[in-house]
């Protein structure tokens, strides 16, 4: 089981190197190595260290955050269809961010506003779905989808009243775009923090996946554990959305694919989700900035094109 993580780690590293090497100017591995050692031409140094490296790391961290958030929500709700995007959390963040953009706020306020929006959406969806009983899967998904539709309407309304010169930035943000990320560090720190918090709890999560009653009977303090997962998943989602806009479906595809190959032991799935989610988004972002170069696609388009068929397949298979 450590071996599968090592393999994933190697794949991640390869993806990172690929993402650094490919672009408007391709950089040969030897030159890449030169820059790492502190040599190389000034152009390559700027290109790699100031442009590609932060962007690639931001993509990696965002993908990892979303995949781990998805994996956590799926255990919390015992439903493999749960995902921050499907549950309308990204929509809440988008409303927060667009509101800040519309009123002409600076980047820092936009981030804070997106964060607040994601948290608000999380409280709203989980609070409404919880009601008096417990979180039943269908009720939560339904609540999430309806709330997401509500956010969609608000977003359309805001776009309709926005002066046209502000529209391109907003649209790119809505579709998810890593070039929006200014710094990868907050996302990376949150990702590492979350993994460190959740790994000692991973076996508890395995038991929780069997249902809350069974988990309690096997010695898990269910309520505190559920709250920890809930808060952590919110934090991960909000950080990811704040970093790169609303990128859909990473939290859905990645844990699902990993479960097919590795089984459902959270001690493996959670760190593997961080690595594989990061790798997926790094590759998707590389594709997004090269496929129609010099133009760039928003990376959310690519993940959605992968994610929608996966979601439908899962839904089809679950009945």
């Amino acid at each position: 089981m450590t071996r599968s993580l090592l393999v994933l780690g190697a794949i991640s590293l390869a993806a990172l190197i690929l993402a650094l090497a490919i672009g408007s100017v391709n950089i040969a591995p030897s030159e890449l190595w030169a820059v790492i050692q502190g040599e190389g031409s000034a152009l390559h140094r700027t290109l790699l260290l100031d442009l590609r490296l932060p962007r690639t790391l931001a993509a990696f961290a965002t993908g990892g955050l979303l995949a781990v958030a998805g994996a956590l929500m799926q255990v919390l709700l015992r439903n493999p269809l749960a995902d921050p995007y499907v549950l309308g959390l990204s929509g809440g963040a988008a409303v927060g961010a667009l509101l800040a953009m519309l009123t002409g706020m600076g980047a820092f306020v936009i981030s804070g506003s997106a964060f607040a929006g994601a948290m608000l959406a999380m409280v709203l969806v989980f609070g409404l779905a919880h009601g008096t009983g417990s979180w039943t899967a269908s009720r939560l998904l339904l609540t999430g989808v309806v709330v997401a539709a509500g956010w969609g309407a608000v977003i359309t309304l805001m776009l309709a009243v926005t002066p046209s010169y502000k529209l391109p930035g907003m649209l790119y943000w809505l579709m998810g775009d890593v070039s929006y990320a200014r710094t990868p560090w907050p996302a990376l720190v949150v990702l590492i923090f979350a993994i460190a918090v959740i790994l000692p709890l991973a076996r508890n999560l395995n038991v929780l996946a069997r249902g809350p009653m069974q988990a309690a009977a096997l010695g898990v303090s269910v309520r505190p554990l559920e709250w920890t997962i809930y808060v952590l998943a919110s934090l991960l989602t909000a950080t990811a959305v704040t970093t790169a806009g609303s990128i859909g479906f990473v939290g859905l595809i990645v844990p699902h694919m990993l479960r097919l190959v590795l089984g459902n032991d959270q001690r493996i799935i959670l760190p593997a989700s961080a690595l594989a989610g990061g790798t997926l988004l790094v590759l998707a972002d590389t594709l997004a900035r090269t496929v129609i170069a010099p133009e760039q696609l928003p990376v959310g388009v690519i993940t959605a094109l992968l994610g929608v068929p996966t979601f439908l397949y899962l839904l089809h298979r679950s009945r």
Binding site: R78, N79, P80, A137, A209, R210, G211, M213, Q214, A216, A217, L218, G219, V220, S221, V222, R259, G263, N264
Partner: peptide, 23 residues
């Protein structure tokens, strides 16, 4: 604590959930 209870007392439920595949 739940953990101390679970070392002394166990329960087989009548109904069981298995949302995720497990061997």
């Amino acid at each position: 604590k739940r953990r101390d209870i679970a070392r002394k007392l166990g329960l087989v439920f009548q109904e069981r959930q298995d949302s995720f595949p497990a061997t």
